[in-house]
Nucleic acid binder design. Structure first.
Lengths: 193, 193
DNA sequence: AAAATAAAATACCGATCGGTACGTTATGAT
DNA sequence: ATCATAACGTACCGATCGGTATTTTATTTT
């Protein structure tokens, strides 16, 4: 009964996500967004609400996609220790490959918005807790297969590995030497025995 | 030969540091700064230069103060393992105590500015490397005293602990449960044997 | 006391911010 | 074919942004 939408909602949200991921919330202007999303300002507001709501939609899109990506990658390898090694190395490689260190959109948001906005405090926490459970389940798989010692605390180690992953992702933004991060990963992996 | 300065340069810089630490670079306006520093806008520009230069001065003040604070705290305890345990627990307690999670000014800057500004990439990296050396020297002290096994790799473990400290500091912004961070710290400390 | 000078205070600059009112255009329902 | 409706495009809103020109005030040197 009216004009049809000319843009793909998923595509423009993906574009907004990429931009917020690169620049953060404050440093991204509505003009930046219209350019990158390829739609006009009123289209953004009628489709997603204001800037904060658009940001939230972008972050939700990111965390859902990221969680399933992490789950898949850790399930790929029969060896749990090798799965984690591959996973951490991939994170590092991606950061060293790209000229711009975007890191993790959720971690960036945890730093920029979580302290001043309860909604994002909760959203980012829940994502990390979700990843922590994936880590834990992976470690428990290693225990059941006999690869890992049954005396280790799967939950605690999973939580420590999440903390280390966050630390790695963040310190990559300062471009430390390769040996620094390689050393860190090797030490972290000794927790899986 | 002219009018005398009415404000204490150190004090107003300290005030600027606190504000940038709380809100970050982009979210802090010149109006915020004049209010908090208690001086007028032209005084800021004549004393510190523009907003970025003021921010840099504030960050340098922070990193210098923080480095010596960390060094002191780790030297305080004869037991290296207890020193680290105290140190990590203090970081956690401070974050849980305060209503606003400021985290670490240097880490915040690593996330917000380092990817887009080489000056801050270098500045934040060098601070982390400096802390890493303090950690390493502390671990080596533990080896020499016989508290720690001489077969461990002091440098690699120090680097892994720095990564974990960053991860802990960042995830605290999402206010995880106490058990989450306590578990993480306990696991990390098992690296010191 | 007067001149020189730098700090302080006020007021202002153009640019950009997030957000919206409004006129135009295209499409589905009748 | 017409009408209702919603998306699109333009143009604009007041507020605030970082930064500065200019005037006033206080202090030291002469």
């Amino acid at each position: 009964m009216a004009r049809t939408r000319e843009f793909d909602e998923e595509k423009v949200l993906e574009a907004a996500m990429q931009l917020f991921w690169e620049k953060g919330y404050e440093a991204t202007s509505l003009s930046d967004l219209t350019t990158r999303m390829g739609i006009q300002r009123p289209s953004i507001y009628s489709t997603f609400g204001d800037k904060k709501e658009l940001f939230e939609a972008a972050l939700r899109r990111y965390t859902m996609s990221r969680a399933s990506e992490v789950r898949t990658k850790l399930q790929n390898n029969p060896s749990v220790k090798e799965a984690f090694r591959h996973f951490f190395n991939e994170v590092i490689d991606e950061e060293y490959t790209e000229s711009l260190s975007r890191g993790c959109f959720c971690i960036n948001t945890m730093v920029e918005l979580a302290p001043h906005d309860e909604k994002f405090e909760i959203l980012t926490r829940e994502h990390q807790m979700y990843l922590s459970v994936i880590f834990q389940e992976t470690i428990e798989r290693g225990i059941q297969s006999g690869e890992l010692d049954s005396s280790i605390d799967a939950k605690a180690i999973a939580q420590a590995l999440i903390v280390s992953l966050i630390g790695l992702t963040v310190i990559m933004k300062s471009r430390p030497t390769r040996s620094f991060v390689d050393n860190s990963i090797e030490v972290m992996l000794t927790l899986l025995r």
